[in-house]
Design a protein around this nucleic acid. Structure first.
Lengths: 328, 328
DNA sequence: CTGTTAGCGCATTCAA
DNA sequence: TTGAATGCGCTAACAG
């Protein structure tokens, strides 16, 4: 591969001039510029990123660590974040924790070694030593959708309380009393907050306060199916099920079908925190509260870049919207 | 951040010795080793990836360019590939072309600049100048699921012909004659191959050869919905619809519902190339041919690493399996 | 506006 | 087994 030295030689200028032309860092004569650009094109020159990073002590790479890339919420978020980062001149190193703390920590090590310029993080619960070391070293960090105790970073998240409020209203409007709640791990802020909001509001919405109807999964389909099954195994028969995120609702619906059969399952209303592609096609349709994953991704990228550039950044909550499919 | 120089100073050894201990490249005395490791731990030393890459002229980073990260096939594939790469000591830079050629090309430029050690590619059709430059420069490349004309690289793909054969058999078994085929772009090998296999086999499976029933989308939901709508607008009424990939089937089902209403839509059988989470919950259920995206990802990573290490690599086809939900 | 020079952090060569 | 020295490719500081 051609180096900048080759380009300079071919253009008949010094290395410094070639560098200035190619990185546009300072003024150059039109003549040099033309010669250097021609030489670069002829040699198919591509700047050596690692060398440039070493010299400039920045990489123009952002790290994005999501909890579960197969969750459409996060794949949508990652997609939007990546696009916006690219537009701002950053690449994104995407890592998937798969809702696993150890795996998340491993990726933080890779990020540290790659010397990313900033981190977009959807944390898996507690702050690990590696994470606090990263923060202590001055790494700009923004949190996506979940906060981590003791980590003081701007947070871009859905408004869990408001979202759960929309669900509670919907349940009440439909006269549901025996509602099953399939949640996420208490160790994850979204899991804890959504549960807290549900528990706090259920009584005044006419919903049973029996904890026989409440179980926590792991925010993945299999764990949620197991949780749903545990509820059914108690012999209780909910008239509605509330899944605390997208994969959770998928797992819950699967369990309903597996355990009760298609017929009986279709007598149960389902409502979901996070909207999925296929909720229009089930019987009955599945309603949901939806937030714009793409917005959160974009807010996160913008916030992180502001942080990198030393501008102040405020946390932000994104309101949720009810997608009511019960009428149709 | 601490550098290896700091570590050496603290351990009271030379820079060279510290390097040898930390990279395990050659023998060191137990004593030096202990002192260096202790010093590194105390300083929370993390090797500077770019510097190391510059010196070793390799980055231990693989590039993975997928067509559409929101397609579960690719998010599953990416997830598996990433895990296996990590286990083999590589990180993965994941990029999403969003079925767009220009965006794919832009990422190839970033990959080139980052000096990735190898490329996993799900191409968007023709070979761009940038891609051929990359290949010409000796970059190891493997193709995932789609081939690119004139690019001679190992290919790991689903067996399109066999998969379409399974679908044709299923359609015939169910006595469908008026079958709508919603395909992908002809410029993408999977789009072309699946269509070719369908067209070649439909007559002998008792399926209409009228091209009024055939339309191409873009392998994304919106494009597929438009294609489905175009078919319906011709006034033809299929008894079954065949979607040529996952997002295509989603779009087709959406269009059926939007155009015909829930009731009429439920009279139409749907079968899909690629299986999705929710096919069990529709009325009627949606059958599919399924291939293991994770396997393809793993095969790709293994093949690419073999290529990097100079071992010979063979292309491989992964057989598809029918998931027949029509009986239940 | 340009050429020369130094050095980012690291792995590796050469002597000892 | 170790220390000293070199250079990977690049940008930035400096002098002209």
């Amino acid at each position: 591969m051609a180096t900048i030295k080759d380009v300079a030689a071919r253009a008949g200028v010094s290395l410094g001039t070639a560098s200035r032309v190619l990185s546009g860092s300072s003024a150059t004569s039109p003549e040099s510029r033309a010669r250097v650009q021609a030489a670069a094109a002829e040699l198919a020159y591509v700047a050596h990123g690692p060398a440039r990073s070493l010299r400039r002590s920045r990489t123009d790479v952002l790290g994005l660590l999501v909890s579960d890339i197969r969750n459409p919420f996060f794949s949508e978020l990652a997609h939007a974040a990546e696009r916006d980062a690219l537009r701002a001149g950053y690449s994104v190193l995407l890592a998937n924790a798969n809702e696993d703390e150890a795996q998340a920590d491993e990726y933080l090590g890779i990020f540290a070694s790659q010397r990313i310029d900033g981190l977009l993080l959807s944390p898996q619960g507690p702050v690990t030593p590696r994470l606090s070391a990263l923060v202590a070293s001055g790494m700009p960090v923004v949190l996506l959708n979940r906060h981590a105790d003791g980590l003081d970073a701007p947070l871009f998240e859905t408004d869990n309380e408001q979202g759960v409020g929309l669900v509670l209203d919907w349940l009440q409007r439909h006269g549901h009393r025996d509602v099953a709640y399939v949640g996420g791990p208490a160790s994850i802020s979204t899991g804890a907050e959504r549960l807290a909001a549900y528990v706090a509001g259920r009584a005044e919405h006419g919903i049973t306060t029996s904890d026989a109807f409440v179980e926590a999964g792991d925010f993945l389909p299999d764990g949620a199916a197991a949780a749903m099954t545990r509820i059914l195994d108690r012999g209780v028969r909910p008239t509605a099920v509330f899944g605390a995120n997208g994969p959770t609702t998928l797992g819950a619906v699967r369990a309903l079908h597996a355990r009760l059969g298609r017929e009986a399952a279709s007598a149960i209303d389902v409502i979901s925190f996070d909207d999925l592609d296929w909720f229009d096609f089930t019987t009955p349709r599945i309603s949901a509260v939806r937030n714009d994953a793409a917005s959160i991704g974009r807010l996160g990228v913008r916030g992180l870049i502001d942080l990198i550039d030393g501008r102040p950044v405020e946390s932000q909550r994104v309101a949720m919207e009810l997608v009511d499919r019960s009428a149709a």
